[in-house]
């Protein structure tokens, strides 16, 4: 765990904002779980509960104009990067006020204003894309960096190795953040994945760092180090963040998945709740009282409720919008 000195390196305002975002992600995801069970969500969702410290720690080390690419389990990355819960909720409801006017849904939320080049329905699909935005930024002489988020499962895709290779030889300002939550769908990572993922950076000649993904401060500091290397033109970094997802691979998995995770394992990781751990540190540092913590939680909970209301009131897009947005400029429409 990062020390008190590490915490002091972060300003109080920053720290409180990080806690708030972690809580926002948790409450947003919990709401989705309920909505899914009630049959209120079209499609399906992969929730980020338990892994909040990774996204928030990583994105808190970025500037607003830095970029991320994300995954099928992307709601946490989006909120950490500044996405509004009401527009996210509207997207998940397929409504016109969603970030993509209802065209994308959970696995394709994109917001270029926020530097979110997209969640992705293809495991590993975002890795080359984020490597490419880093290429463009360095080619055009900008100092922006890109974080590529991906899972332990995605670490076995060819594009991961290819992207590390090209990022290394081209010295690209990209940070590969692997979220190792111990499972690839319903199979333990160890059954599918050779060695330690973090060690895969070594033969590529790029620094690798293993981080406790439940410690938001440790995550922040590791990504800060990677960001300063990237901005200085020293190239990419691989960070493997170890954590655990509390919910199923996708909501509704109990219909078919069976008991694939030991109860004791689940209980142990819930004991290590990254939000509780961080909140308690802030309380003991005297940066926040328990009442203030509760108040933040209540605010975030009600903002998520308001987001559901916003989404329900937002209209569906006109059905003919299905034929729009294929091509830019002159040739809007299918043909």
């Amino acid at each position: 765990m990062a020390t008190q000195k590490d915490l002091d390196h972060i300003t109080k305002d920053d720290a409180l904002d990080m806690l708030r975002r972690m809580i926002r992600i948790r409450r947003f995801e919990e709401k989705l779980s309920v909505l899914f069970k009630r049959g209120k969500l079209p499609g399906f969702v992969h929730l980020y509960t338990g892994e909040e410290a990774i996204a928030v720690g990583a994105c808190s080390a970025l500037r607003d104009d830095d970029r991320i690419t994300s995954t099928h389990r992307g709601h946490g990355h989006l909120i950490a990067k500044g996405a509004l819960v009401n527009r996210m909720m509207a997207e998940l409801f397929g409504r016109v006020d969603g970030y993509c006017r209802g065209k994308g849904g959970s696995m394709h939320i994109v917001s270029f204003e926020l530097g979110i080049i997209g969640t992705n329905g293809i495991v590993g699909g975002g890795i080359p894309i984020g490597t490419g935005s880093a290429w463009a930024d360095s080619h055009l002489g900008r100092d922006n960096v890109t974080i590529v988020f991906f899972g332990d499962g995605a670490s076995n895709q060819g594009v991961f190795f290819e992207s590390m290779n090209i990022a290394s030889v081209w010295k690209l300002p990209v940070i590969f953040v692997c979220e190792n939550n111990g499972y690839t769908e319903w199979t333990p990572t160890a059954e599918l994945t050779a060695g330690n993922i973090v060690d895969r950076s070594a033969p590529m000649g790029i620094p690798g760092e293993a981080v406790d993904g439940n410690d938001v401060v440790a995550m922040r500091l590791a990504v800060e180090r990677a960001v300063s290397r990237a901005r200085a033109g020293d190239g990419p970094t691989l960070i493997e963040a170890r954590s655990y997802r509390w919910n199923g691979h996708n909501e509704g998995e109990e219909a078919f998945a069976g008991a694939y995770r030991p109860d004791a394992e689940q209980a142990e990781w819930r004991e290590r709740d990254p939000i509780v751990a961080f909140g308690e540190r802030l309380v003991s540092a005297g940066w926040m009282t328990r009442d203030e913590w509760d108040a933040v939680d209540a605010e975030e909970l009600s903002s998520v409720d308001a987001a559901v209301e916003f989404a329900e009131q937002s209209p569906f897009p006109d059905a003919d919008e299905a034929l729009l947005h294929l091509f830019a400029d002159d040739s809007e429409g299918v043909r």
Binding site: G98, Y99, C100, R101, K103, G104, V110, H325, L326
Partner: peptide, 8 residues
């Protein structure tokens, strides 16, 4: 990507 993002 353009289509999925609603033309962004």
């Amino acid at each position: 990507l353009r289509y999925m993002s609603g033309g962004q």
